[in-house]
């Protein structure tokens, strides 16, 4: 469960200070599929960094699984990211010149998981993300855009995180491929009960989620259910 209370983030100080988040609060239950929307400059990237434990808030609290992570040091944040959070980025998700398998394994490598266990878990994750075994030994630069994103999803899954955080995961994809990737997220949410937070500025993409939080100028302007059922027919991949 994620619970953030009155989060603010101020960059700089004095006259040049800029407040990117001006008091944001919400709770996300396990198994929810949430989209965070907003135009650029709305503070959604800053919020994503907070949720992803890449940064700490200036004020406010952030509880991830009942643990207060808003006051942790850089090294402690790295531990949280390694064990509790999976990331999917818009671009540069995979290490170049590295096999699909190795890329997916990487979080387990940093977690010090034994080699046999790594392989098994990585395969499971890759299957869950809809990849086929023939691609496992491919180099990351031999993959298509959609495949790259699905490998990134597999990597985000592999350490069995509390939260999967996707930052504009379809931003670089064409509509059809984007639908396949978003379908993968939906499937993981529905069938495996994963908590997923999708950051996007596109309405169509946000509609894949069950709940949409909209930010503008550092504050939440709406927090409502989406019409996800309308897109149920796109689930199949």
């Amino acid at each position: 469960m994620i619970k953030i209370t009155d989060i603010t983030k101020t960059y700089g100080s004095g006259d040049t200070a800029f407040q990117a988040l001006k008091g944001v609060s919400f709770t996300i239950e396990d198994g929810e599929f949430i989209a965070i929307m907003g135009p650029s400059g709305s503070g959604k990237s800053t919020l994503m960094h907070m949720l992803g434990c890449l940064d700490t808030p200036t004020t406010g609290t952030y509880f991830l699984d009942d643990k207060d992570v808003s006051t942790l040091t850089d090294e402690e944040l790295a531990d949280i990211r390694r064990l509790h959070i999976g990331f999917v980025f818009q671009s540069f998700n995979l290490l170049p010149r590295t096999t699909v398998m190795r890329n997916v394994m990487l979080p387990l490598v940093y977690a010090g998981v034994a080699e046999a266990e790594r392989e098994k878990r990585s395969k499971d994750a890759l299957f869950s993300a809809g990849m086929t075994e023939s691609h496992f030994s491919h180099m990351s630069n031999q993959l298509s855009g959609g495949q790259i994103q699905r490998v990134a999803i597999a990597r985000a899954l592999v350490n069995n995180p509390t939260l999967i955080l996707a930052d504009e995961p379809t931003g670089n994809l064409d509509t059809k491929t984007g639908e396949i990737v978003l379908g993968t997220f939906q499937k993981l949410n529905k069938e495996h009960g994963r908590t997923i937070i999708l950051i996007t500025h596109e309405h169509d993409v946000a509609e894949y989620a069950e709940r949409i939080i909209t930010l503008r100028d550092g504050v939440i302007v709406s927090d409502s259910k989406s019409h996800a059922q309308r897109y149920a027919k796109h689930y199949e991949i």
Binding site: G52, L54, D74, E75, A78, D79, R81, R82, L83, G86, F87, F89, F92, N93, L95, P96, L106, P107, Y110, A111, R155, N159
Partner: peptide, 16 residues
């Protein structure tokens, strides 16, 4: 640099 950022995002410690 981006590779380092990615590694850190997925949990690499400074020492790693």
């Amino acid at each position: 640099t981006r590779e380092i950022g990615l590694r850190k995002a997925i949990g690499a410690r400074k020492s790693d």
